[in-house]
Amino acid sequence: MIFDFNTAAKAAIGCWATGSLLSLFARRTPALKLPALMLSFAGSLVMVGFIASYWSLLDRPPLRTLGETRLWYAALIPLVGFLVEYRWKITWLKYYCMGLATFFLVINMLHPEVFDKTLMPALQSPWFIPHVVVYLVGYVMLAASSVTALHNVSLQLRAKGNVNGESVSHYLALLGFVLLSFGLIFGALWAKEAWGHYWTWDPKETWAFLSWLAYLGYLHACRYKIDRGKLQWYLALSFLVLLVCWFGVNYLPSARNSVHTYTQS
């Protein structure tokens, strides 16, 4: 491996931290704006590079364990922050995103994982990568949507109008919902090939269905006369259902017979 995990993680966190600092200074000195963005971006690039080298070393996609999925979130969440800044000129989201990514990397540094190349036969499928990646990106969008909604709630509490922020949390939720739908159906199509049935109410499936329903509910409430401003709390909290689905399921009594629990190491 070109560099070990701790070095890569520290380098990425360093890039995000200095990038964030510079971009705070850039409010007064606009010349710092570009270096700030490039440094923050470099942090994610370091993680992407690490994932690529880890992938080739493992001879399998690093998507099998919870810790491995955290690597992907850490690489991708800041990118959503940069995208939102680029698209909607909203600058604050990227700080939250880089903070969240740092949090994921710190968890991984505190709980080092076994370097394990094995991949059980059921996971050896062309569906493995699309199913997990679509979900990953969906979760990333919905995490950003939830953070935006929380920010909107805090603005509401201080009685500040914020139509732009509400449309960001809305479109991120919409994108996230589309990706959840694809993830769910890809999962069903894969399950038919691997386990013989497209839907068995496995606890992970049940929770994926629940989180899908949560966002389905949001979209219908939005479509009806309910004010988007009032739905920010709902959007902020919906992400909790996703968190249960992502790793909380492992701790539930129903998970005993699940085929979906991540390898614990």
Binding site: P203, T206, W207, F209, L210, L213, V249, L252, P253, S254
Partner: peptide
């Protein structure tokens, strides 16, 4: 539906 699924998602089936 979500509440019924919640029962199925928490209580071992």
């Amino acid at each position: 539906l979500a509440l019924l699924s919640l029962i199925g998602g928490v209580i071992p089936q």
